[in-house]
């Protein structure tokens, strides 16, 4: 009861404020783990290459090659097989949009 009342109060605040909160896109959420190795926003880290600003087509071409075991890899061949084509496209769009 208290929690519900409180939530209603919160919603009132947000509505009053015009709900300015921009939620992270699915592409941004999907891309989060990439920062675990490729540096912040895909900027590259040590031996791990930068992927920020990579052309969309180049990203997808590399992705497909990893996925088909047609490009030398350590982990990317195993990683790419865990995502759908739609998800790969979201990732490509996301990293293409970063500088």
């Amino acid at each position: 009861m208290n929690a519900r009342f409180h939530r209603a109060a919160m919603t009132a605040v947000l509505l009053a404020a015009g709900a300015a909160q921009a939620e992270p896109s699915s592409g941004l959420l999907l891309a989060q783990p990439c920062a675990g190795c490729h540096g912040q926003d895909g900027a590259g880290q040590g031996a791990t290459p930068a992927i920020a600003g990579l052309d969309r087509e180049a990203f997808l071409e590399a992705w497909a090659a990893f996925r088909a075991d047609a490009r030398p890899a350590t982990v990317m061949n195993r990683i790419t097989k865990g995502y759908t084509e739609e998800e790969a496209a979201l990732l490509a769009d996301h990293f293409a949009s970063l500088q």
């Binding site: 190795c37 540096g39 912040q40 040590g46």
Partner: peptide, 17 residues
């Protein structure tokens, strides 16, 4: 050897994150 290098990059990246 490559995975050892990538492991180090992982540690640096994830702690930045």
């Amino acid at each position: 050897a490559l995975e050892a290098e990538y492991a180090d990059a992982w540690y640096a990246s994830i702690t930045q994150d």
